Computed example of a mutant assay.
Amino acid sequence: MHIQNRTFIISGGASGLGLATVRDLHAHGGYISILDLNAENGNAIVNELGSDRTKFFETDVTDTSSVQAAVTGTTAWIAQTGAPIGAVIPAAGVGSPGKLVDRHNEPIPLERLDVVININLRGVLDLIRLCLPHMTTTTPLPPDNERGVIILVSSSAAFDGQPGQVAYAASKGAIRSLTLPLARDLAQYGIRAVSIAPSYFESNMTAQMSDKVRKSLERVLEFPKRPGKGEDFARMVRHCVENVMLNGETIRLDGGTRMPSKL
C-alpha cells in the first residue's frame, strides 16, 4: 500500500504515538484524518501541517454517534480530495492502573475498568467497523489487489503485564488476539490487519509515571537503553502500511525488553 494520496484515519492523533504517526504519514504524502477528544491540540496540528491534507474531528471513541460523525465527515472530505482510505489506525488509549482489590480489601470500582475497556477495545472495534464499508468498496491496487490495512496498537502488557495492569493487559491482549481473525475476515477484500505492541515509550501515559517507576523501567531495558520515541513507532506504522506481507501478526516494538513482575 502506498502512502501518497491515500487517507489515514488516526484516533488519538492529537498527542503521543498517534501524533508522531500523523506527522510521519503526512510527511510522506498522506492525507490525515485526526480523531481526538482534545480539540485545542487537534486544531493546532491542522494549523501546523496545513489544512490541505489534514482534517480534525473532535471525537469521543466511547460514543458511537461521535465516531460515526467523524467517519461521515472523513468520507465527505475524501469525496472532495479523491484520496481513498489507505489505513485505519486506532491509537487512542488509556492506562489507569489499579489492582482488582486494594490494600483495604476493597474491589476496584467497575467504572475504572469500564473506562479502559471502552477506550482500548470497544472504541477500537467501533471505529474499525464503521470505516470498513468505505474501504471494502475502493478500487484495489495492483499487483496484489490490496485495498488497505488496519494497524492496531497492542502493548508489551499483552505478553508480560505488570501488577496493576489487569484491565490494561486484558484490553491490549484482546487487540493481540483479534489481529489474526480480523486479517482472515478481511482477506477476501484485500485488507490487511497488523498490530504493533510497543513497550516503554515516551507518551502522555508514561509521562504520568513517578520518577521511581520510570527509573525502575529504565533499568530493565536491553538495547537501546532508552524509552522508545514516537518517531520509532511511526516508522513501524509506515512499514506496516508499505509492506504487503505484514498481515495477521503482532509485532513487538520493545528493544528486546521483557517487563518484570516487580519493579
Rank of each mutant, 00 (worst) to 15 (best):
T72K: 12
S15C: 09
R226E: 06
S96W: 12
V166R: 02
A79T: 12
G190Q: 05
A193L: 02
L130C: 09
G256H: 07
D232F: 03
N247Y: 06
P133E: 03
A234K: 04
N5R: 12
V237I: 15
L17Q: 06
T64H: 09
T72L: 09
P107I: 14
I89P: 01
V67L: 10
R53I: 06
E146D: 14
L130V: 04
I34G: 07
V213E: 09
F8T: 08
R23H: 12
P143Q: 08
E222P: 00
M209Q: 12
T21L: 01
I78D: 02
R219V: 13
D254V: 15
A174Q: 03
G50S: 08
V153T: 15
G50D: 09
K215N: 14
E222Q: 13
T74S: 08
A170D: 04
A193Y: 00
L121E: 12
S156Q: 15
V237C: 06
A157V: 06
M209A: 10
D60E: 11
A91P: 00
G190S: 07
H28V: 00
Q68P: 02
V149F: 01
P143L: 11
C131Y: 03
V94G: 02
H2G: 11
S11H: 08
G86F: 02
G95E: 10
V166M: 12
I78Y: 04
S210K: 06
R226C: 10
A76H: 11
G256L: 09
Q4W: 01
H104P: 00
Q208V: 11
R23A: 07
G173Y: 06
I251T: 09
H239E: 13
I191A: 08
E146Y: 07
L125N: 14
A39E: 14
R238N: 06
L49H: 05
A79P: 01
R112G: 08
L113I: 15
G190N: 07
A92Q: 03
I85F: 05
V61E: 04
C131A: 13
M1A: 14
D254T: 15
